[in-house]
Design a protein around this nucleic acid. Structure first.
Lengths: 232, 232
DNA sequence: GCCGCAAGATTGTTCAACAATCTTTCGGCG
DNA sequence: CGCCGAAAGATTGTTGAACAATCTTGCGGC
């Protein structure tokens, strides 16, 4: 289990004493998990982690409660907490959410000039990343775009939910090992989507987005070794 | 502050020893808050509550972390935790969420015969409650209906979000004191909505639902003493 | 009447201990 | 040889006490 080296020096830039230590620990773990340094399925031992982070078991448990609430980790009673390891069912749930809130935000969100400019700026970054073949850059831009789409709703709760969903997406990618390039052939579709929004064609944009999400889900499921189903 | 009497006998049916005490405490508090026995704004003192519930301060804090994650309570550093007291901004945020996910579920959810029967059964209960002038019955049926609408999406995360939103709605009502009858004049609109779904008129149902939510939000805001705005 | 300061109360965090449960190991038995 | 079961060890769940940091309150001085 590659946990020990991942934890080495985890408590780098000394923590701000006496100010939300529990939340700080949760943040550190969330970041490490998002970065893939704590791979899905890893066991997070209370004793080892509390020593590595320099906090008490009690405080660490508070952080675990937070992360379990975000379903970033899974808590099995009397057995410990593990980094969440999303499977095919979780992927389907992720896309159920995305296929509902993203097109809805596109249909009914507040799309003003500033929002359009923001979306176009993100797609500029995505295209630049494709030119330099930066898989990470394209992945980041893709996440930024879909986050921005949901943000059109103006709702913080929905943005939070989207953030949670995207975090779970990152876990899915980490669970698949060396990330293949999932994004380059979606850049053009994203660009077209933004162009439709610029043109005020919301219905077409929403419909295209739903097809995009269907395709993306199928591709992910295939990579997870699930036979593609014709119906849903 | 009417906290002491509200806490009397809060630890009734002896709790299952050594089995998720933290979650159990969170559940007890959640229920008491939903029922209005701990009104919005009440301070939840660690010492008093831990004594009343018969758990240690540490375990109680774990429950607080859970409830804060659900934004059922608000945690102010070094000052304590308080039952959330939603204001006008929170109401607007609630309706931003509802106006997005409910119509979207109506538009794109899986509506089979069983789902339609379930919706119609809920409206039967609502109409029965209206006949007996049961405000509580109509309020419950209303929540059940909108919960069921979101459930059409098939997504557990979205149902959870809706559950959270409805819990916040209950807090809003509790903060307004003796609940006036907000629901009787919406029963017919809900019935019409279900009838449209039965007839397969999804677009019309979604559009009507959005208007319904707009009106409901305005009415709530007026009762909160906010001048109605023409635009949004 | 207002400001500042000391005393008290409350929250934030840690530590140590024990109970309950899970895991592993080892011996007995068919 | 393999399987079952019990004892031993490790890990999680919960508690209580202790102390530091912060907030609140009440009092005295100006």
């Amino acid at each position: 289990m590659p946990m020990n080296e991942a934890l080495q020096g985890i408590a780098d830039g000394g923590h701000a004493a006496h100010a939300h230590t529990g939340a700080w620990v949760a943040g550190v773990l969330r970041a490490r998990i998002s970065a893939g340094q704590l791979p899905p399925g890893s066991k997070l031992s209370e004793q080892k982690l509390s020593e590595a982070l320099g906090v008490s078991r009690n405080t660490l448990r508070e952080a675990f409660t937070v992360l379990a609430g975000e379903s970033v980790v899974q808590r099995i009673p009397n057995r410990g907490v593990y980094v969440a390891a999303p499977g095919a069912d979780d992927v389907r749930e992720i896309y159920r959410v995305r296929r509902l809130i993203e097109p809805a935000a596109v249909l009914w969100g507040d799309i003003d000039e500033a929002a359009l400019a923001g979306l176009e700026a993100i797609m500029d970054k995505a295209q630049a990343a494709r030119v330099t073949a930066s898989v990470q850059g394209m992945a980041d831009a893709n996440q930024d775009l879909h986050k921005a789409l949901v943000a059109l709703s103006g709702s913080a709760s929905l943005s939070d939910l989207m953030e949670k969903v995207l975090a779970e997406m990152r876990l899915v990618f980490h669970a698949m090992g060396p990330t293949p390039d999932f994004h380059s052939h979606y850049v053009d579709r994203n660009v077209a989507l933004v162009a439709q929004l610029r043109a005020g064609q919301r219905d077409e944009a929403a419909a295209g987005l739903r097809r995009y999400l269907d395709d993306s889900e199928q591709e992910l499921l295939v990579h997870l070794g699930v036979a593609p189903s014709s119906g849903r």
